[in-house]
Amino acid sequence: MAANRDAGRVYGLLTEFESPSALVAAVRQVRDAGFRHWDVHTPFPIHGMDEAMGIRGTRLPFLILGGGITGLGLATLMQWWMNAVDYPFAISGKPLFGLPANIPVMFELTVLFSAFAAFFGMWGLNGMPKLYHPLFTSRRFRRATQDRFFIVIEARDPQFDAGRTREFLASLGGSVVEAVGESAED
């Protein structure tokens, strides 16, 4: 198969649907065809979409667990170092490092670092902040925030082939198939 002349410059192909039910049926076919770099854009959340797309669970919980353990360890280490080593100071006959007194800060830093991991981890996994996206070049795509539903298959997908993928998308029953360029000049 000869490489497409535009392969390096085309971001992907999009197809448009007018109703969620038509969309979900098409989404299942894309999933079953084995594409990996593709996405669905809708004006509102659609229940069952994760399952229809075959999206696997996110790695975010493990990042959050890591953040929590980091916060817990840091809080323990910090309090031990400050109260028992660097500036030992006995307060009301308590041990220099008494666990109950340190638990509130251990709890707070666990929560704080978990929240950091959740917030920034979500940004990182979603590739944010992202000020530009190739889909912004499509006038048609603007209606993704209003009343249209889109499936986009990216050109970097290993199965992507400009001709055959276009035929495949056309067979899904959407109203139109459109190529989206990497940049506005395309």
Partner: peptide
């Protein structure tokens, strides 16, 4: 349970 315990532990 911990909040209850810690205050007593601390006030002693």
């Amino acid at each position: 349970a911990f909040s209850q315990y810690m205050l007593y532990w601390y006030a002693n």
